[in-house]
Simulated assay, not measured.
Amino acid sequence: MSIRHLLRHGVPLLAAALTLSACGGEGSGSTPSGSADSGGLSRISPDERKPLRLSGRTLEDTPLDTAAYRGEVVVVNIWASQCGPCRAEASGLTTVAEETRAKGVRFVGINTRDPSREAARAFEKKYDVPYPSLYDRMGKLVLAFPRGSVNPQAIPSTVFLDRKGRIAARALRPLSEADLRKVITPLAAEKRS
């Protein structure tokens, strides 16, 4: 098979397969230490949590660094505008983000695989998303997560950081408002330090 044939036929097929497997599937991957709820949420005990710092440019092309949120709980949602399950969970994320802000909880999105910022901004406008999203067209931010914390092919995914900036929980599926509160409430109750 020639390189030309592979580039013409193989790359588009691989991209299509990744897109189909990426949206809504849990996929495989190592499970972080801690307890896994039957609903697909994994929690990590405080002594086994790994730090995560994300930085980049938002959909509005402004810099964002999660280190600025140290001392607060941070909910990081990985999404794409063409992902049906991402659209299904968007209003719940928006509602919980607004209601928990006064409790020291910040939400940050990571928009991945959208070829342009315009589609992602249209998604945020449609769902009235009140928090910033990092633009990660090539998935480099997602690949920088500690091994086993997310599956780069599974979107939506959500990672919860404790007040020290460490991964405290994760979900490799869409989340309801109840799911979000179930994880955020005990994290927000943890002592600030």
Rank of each mutant, 00 (worst) to 15 (best):
R181G: 11
P152F: 11
S176H: 09
I155K: 10
L143S: 14
L180I: 07
A169I: 09
N151K: 02
P146R: 14
S157G: 02
A178G: 10
A154D: 10
I155T: 14
D162K: 13
Y135S: 00
S133K: 12
E177W: 08
R173F: 02
A189C: 09
L141E: 01
A178C: 07
K191P: 04
R192H: 14
A171G: 15
S149V: 05
S176F: 00
F160P: 05
A171S: 11
N151H: 05
S149W: 13
V142D: 02
R173Y: 03
R137K: 14
Y135H: 01
P132G: 00
I184T: 04
L134P: 08
S176P: 04
R181I: 13
D136I: 11
P186D: 00
R181H: 12
R147N: 11
R163F: 03
P132L: 03
A168N: 05
Y131L: 01
K191E: 10
R173W: 05
P146Y: 11
G139H: 00
V159C: 03
L175G: 10
I184L: 00
S149T: 05
D179G: 09
R173G: 04
R137D: 06
P152Q: 13
T185K: 15
K164W: 10
T158Y: 04
V150W: 01
V142Q: 08
P152S: 14
R170T: 15
R166G: 11
N151A: 01
V142Y: 06
P174V: 11
R170I: 15
P174I: 11
G139D: 02
G148F: 02
R192Q: 15
P174S: 12
L180A: 01
G139Y: 03
P152V: 14
I184N: 01
K164E: 15
D162M: 10
L175P: 06
R137F: 00
A188F: 08
G148A: 09
K140A: 09
I167R: 06
K191C: 02
V150E: 07
K191Q: 15
R147D: 14
G165H: 07
R166D: 12
A178L: 15
L134E: 03
K182T: 11
A154S: 14
A189W: 00
D162E: 05
I184S: 00
S176Y: 03
T185P: 00
P146D: 10
D162W: 03
D179E: 02
E190K: 06
P156E: 12
R137T: 12
A168C: 01
F145Y: 07
S157L: 09
L143P: 15
A171R: 13
K164F: 06
L187K: 04
R137S: 13
Q153E: 14
K182H: 07
M138P: 09
P152T: 12
K191D: 13
F145C: 06
I184Q: 04
I155P: 12
Q153G: 15
V142W: 01
R137V: 03
K164D: 14
N151L: 04
P186K: 12
Y131E: 07
I167Q: 12
S133Q: 03
A178E: 12
N151S: 02
R192P: 05
L180K: 07
L175E: 12
G148M: 05
A144D: 04
S176K: 08
L180C: 08
